[in-house]
Write a protein that binds this DNA or RNA. Structure first.
Lengths: 259, 259
DNA sequence: ATTGTCGGTTCATTATTCGAACCATTGGTT
DNA sequence: AACCAATGGTTCGAATAATGAACCGACAAT
């Protein structure tokens, strides 16, 4: 691994439960030498990718990432188009909608939208890490991901998030097969209890999945009518998003069937 | 300069007029050796900071920056709070509002909001680079920046964007002095002809300016009444933003006077 | 067929990174 | 007050990774 990769990998130690990390923690988490970490962090800091704050000199992500993200959006308007689509989606379904993408071996929520229609709703946080086997989004992605990727996920121990979390590889594979046919994956209470989520994959220019669009509703509201509506709206929305970011669905994606 | 800094500096070659760059161009723009650039870009690509696309294998910014930006927002909600404030600001003034921050020696627009009130409006792009001497935002920042920074900017040749661009260091210094008193800077057609912009600095936790909030209107609509309203609203909005991101105005900032 | 691009690769030389040990400071314990 | 275990930061010889001139094959224009 080159020096640059080492430095950048330090950035991925940050997540939404560890927004600020001290030098010693970074050293431990990365397994690198403290002097090395210090030097790398200093360089990252000089370039604005992290900043140090407060009296404990913990590091946190810096403002430079915002500039890059704004430029990335100017290149491929994934976020802005998604937000647009999510707004419509949560309006037409009355439930919480969100978009996540896969980076490395992680599924990250990037943005979400709430519907004001009901007093109770599923709440989300951006930059949250989702599990592949426990969420509709994860299953939607896996259902069109490369075999080797799916194998990699199923081979590792699968976290039990709730009593309803499905961890049996066989049953998960069956769920993926069904999702491939429908173009929609779902998870009933697999990540958060009482949350029923539907999701559809979104594809990049190379016809490979890059993430998923999802609608999450309280289980108590999940009637057959709502399910039907969600599936219809979700599929249209995901297709729309894929196209508007310059992506293409693979030929095996069931575009034209009823969901 | 360390290897990491070199690699990260390659990322700053991208801007909103150069969203995709080929290997040879990067080599030329950076002045580095082609082999070096290739290796660095490969590492950046492996980490998702850039991606290669199309048949010409040009590089563009990758999706990883979005994840980091979402996390940065979870740490310091600069963007989301700004968007909130910009929406109110453009509503109450009826004109285009935007927010920019300084990174290195560059002033970058991060987000903006339009008012639907008028048929004509000043249009913006996110991730655009603004000039310090030609825009209200730039002057607002400079008016509370460190002396050495101001000197650095004024020492370099100042671009002439329009016939109205002020490039006389003496007059610019006078404008900064006035902005320090008012807490508001303005530029009349200094960057784009026919655009009159007002701006107020926003401050970080260390009481130093990090950027500016601005309202830009067509010169034809800039009446005394509108100016008064813009100054009042802008000052309140900038103060609000500073506070909501955990920042503090320096003691010399004229908070309580009328603008 | 020649020339000039392009993205990408090679490999001996060389400069940078690495890491164990070391400071200085802080905060809690005895 | 002495002690201990943290913290963030620094040093410097040894080890490793970065470097860059030259090269490759592919493509386009001349």
């Amino acid at each position: 691994m080159g020096t640059v990769s080492k430095a950048l990998s330090l950035l991925s130690l940050f997540d939404h439960v560890r927004l600020e990390i001290g030098l010693s923690d970074i050293t431990r988490l990365s397994g690198m030498n403290k002097a090395t970490v210090f030097r790398l962090m200093s360089e990252l800091q000089a370039q604005g990718f992290v900043e140090q704050i407060g009296n404990d000199r913990a590091y946190r992500l810096g403002p430079e990432v915002l500039r890059l993200a704004a430029l990335r959006e100017a290149t491929v308007p994934l976020l802005s188009v998604s937000q647009d689509i999510l707004r419509q989606l949560c309006e037409s379904t009355g439930e919480t909608a969100h978009m996540s993408i896969v980076q490395g071996h992680q599924l990250n929520t990037l943005t979400h939208a709430y519907s004001p229609q009901h007093g109770t709703r599923v709440t989300m946080e951006d930059a949250e890490v989702l599990s592949f086997h426990g969420t509709g989004s994860g299953l939607a992605f896996l259902s069109f991901a490369e075999d080797s990727f799916v194998e990699g996920i199923l081979a590792e121990p699968l976290a039990v998030h709730t009593p309803q979390t499905q961890t049996d590889p066989k049953k998960l594979r069956a769920a993926l097969a069904q999702a491939r046919v429908l173009g929609i994956a779902e998870s009933i209470g697999g990540f958060e209890a009482d949350v029923h989520s539907h999701a559809a994959p979104i594809f990049g220019p190379d016809q490979r999945p890059i993430g998923a669009l999802a609608v999450a509703a309280p289980m108590s509201r999940m009637t057959t009518q709502l399910k039907t509506r969600i599936r219809r709206e979700l599929k249209a929305a995901a297709l729309d998003l894929t196209q508007r970011i310059g992506g293409f669905c693979p030929p095996e994606y069931p575009q034209h069937q009823a969901a």
